[in-house]
């Protein structure tokens, strides 16, 4: 049997943390892209597009992320196209992130007072000009703190990929635990590593939020 020292455990966990970070980045970038599309679909004047988008958001917000993961992982296999845990986790987390970001961003766009829309249109700006010069710059400022805050949820969400067998931080923790039987140390370290990833983001989100508040925008 191989003996694991504390440093072996820590080194292995740190190596696995890379995959947590990579998966988080994929989910966040993918989710932001899809989320942006959804936000504009949601704001379009087509009522069916609006309904479809809110249904999408409600479905992803009203079901467990674990089920979304299972449905994609096992669903793809059931359709005759088995995919890797890696791909399944990336897709599920991207869709999950896009639904939440769409909801956050829609709120920010709607938070810009309606009167400004009307004012810009009266001044002769068309839809895109209004969006580009009046609404978006303001909505963008409002959206940054909650978006940074949500990135913490994305990082924590990647922990569920461990359940379908993707070896990231949590899975590495359970594997090391099976080899060493030191659950207390290992899961404390795993928690600490997640904390080290998430806490700075949480603090940064809070700082940004406070800055907006002080600027009188909230």
């Amino acid at each position: 049997m191989i003996e694991f020292t504390f440093w072996d455990i820590l080194r292995n966990l740190l190596l696995a943390t890379r995959w947590t970070i990579v998966l988080s980045l994929i989910a966040f970038v993918g989710g932001a892209t899809v989320g942006l599309l959804l936000t504009f679909m949601r704001l379009s004047s087509n009522r069916w597009l609006q309904r479809l988008t809110s249904l999408y958001v409600d479905l992803f917000q009203g079901t467990p992320l674990l089920m979304q993961l299972f449905l994609i992982f096992f669903g793809a296999a059931a359709m005759g196209h088995p995919i890797s845990a890696w791909l399944a986790a990336s897709i599920a987390l991207t869709l999950f992130t896009s639904a939440f970001l769409c909801d956050i961003w829609r709120g920010c766009l709607e938070a810009v007072a309606k009167g400004q829309w009307h004012a810009a249109r009266v001044l002769g700006m068309n839809y895109f000009q209004t969006m580009r010069h009046v609404i978006l710059p303001q909505a963008l400022r409002l959206s940054i703190p909650p978006t940074v805050g949500f990135s913490v949820q994305v990082i924590k969400g990647t922990a569920l990929a461990s359940i379908i067998g993707f070896v990231e931080l949590t899975k590495a923790g359970t594997m090391l635990n099976n080899a060493t039987f030191e659950p207390f140390t290992i899961f404390a370290l795993v928690a600490l590593l997640y904390f080290a990833l998430c806490y700075p983001l949480s603090c940064y989100a809070r700082y940004l939020e406070k800055k907006l508040y002080d600027a009188g925008l909230r």
């Binding site: 922990a159 635990n177 290992i186 899961f187 795993v190 928690a191 904390f195």
Partner: peptide, 14 residues
Amino acid sequence: NTPFIVQLFFIFFG
């Protein structure tokens, strides 16, 4: 700032 699953594992296994 930590995932629920890790909290659960810490309580149950740790």
